[in-house]
Design a protein around this nucleic acid. Sequence first.
DNA 1: CATATTTACGACAAGTTTATCCTAATAATT
DNA 2: AATTATTAGGATAAACTTGTCGTAAATATG
Lengths: 144, 144
Amino acid sequence: MFSKACEYGIKAIIYIATQSLKQERVKIGDIVENVGSPEAFTAKILGALTKHNIVKSYTGPYGGFEIERDSMKSINVADIVFAIDGESIYNGCGLGLSECNSAKPCPMHDKFVKVRSELKKMLQTTSIYDLAQGVKSGRTILIR
Amino acid sequence: MFSKACEYGIKAIIYIATQSLKQERVKIGDIVENVGSPEAFTAKILGALTKHNIVKSYTGPYGGFEIERDSMKSINVADIVFAIDGESIYNGCGLGLSECNSAKPCPMHDKFVKVRSELKKMLQTTSIYDLAQGVKSGRTILIR
DNA sequence: CATATTTACGACAAGTTTATCCTAATAATT
DNA sequence: AATTATTAGGATAAACTTGTCGTAAATATG
């Protein structure tokens, strides 16, 4: 469903958020150790997320990544997916037609639009803060 | 959402079905002309769908592809996706954890399972026959 | 200012999906 | 049997995604 890049990005952001809740900046090494993703690739993805202002990064000693409490509450999974994969997941015809709308729909248009808008809604209403709280409480896990 | 292979496969099957409703076998050239997909790649996908008994193929003059009326009604989009992409779309953790279930879920597990099961249900309740009727009636289109 | 620590970034490599090409197998017609 | 029309299938190529590596830039500390 998601690309690997998205999977790694979402998990990294959640992990950073859990540590930021404890006022702790995390280094890339900590992140990949705790989410089980390849280091260099994850670093590249975090670079993109930094540019999109989803996470803040600091170079040098005592540097690393962090997310402000405010951001954590306002940023949702849809923002992360958009920053990494663009809007391709949300737009475009399910069967690949160059144009497809209710006036001239592909055979699956109506049903496809319905489930996709549910997916979009789900991603938009799932905040990083909530996900981080789940991990913090021990109810959910980031690695296995 | 779907792979290109699935997009081409679904469209090809729908087109074959519309022609089978008129008792006409179709050649690969007709198919790609009417759904706008690359010929050799589409032929390969149809080979897989033939092996899975989703479509019937005949070599030689007057050969081509056809789908029986019965099959058309019993086969749904989920069957096509399964034949091409396997069950990977339906199973597996949304964040890529090797194991993920309600006992030890990833942070997105519950919400993810919900939308995915809606997707699965949608695919399972969408028959080729219905999709072909939509195209036949002119209400929906396969190429643009 | 030198050193150590950390992210940034670009080049490259490996793997997967998508796409093409060529030949073989099958079957209908003459 | 020869010819022609068609799918089957393997080898190869191109494009995209995933992953690695090395060096540069930034910054804290002594």
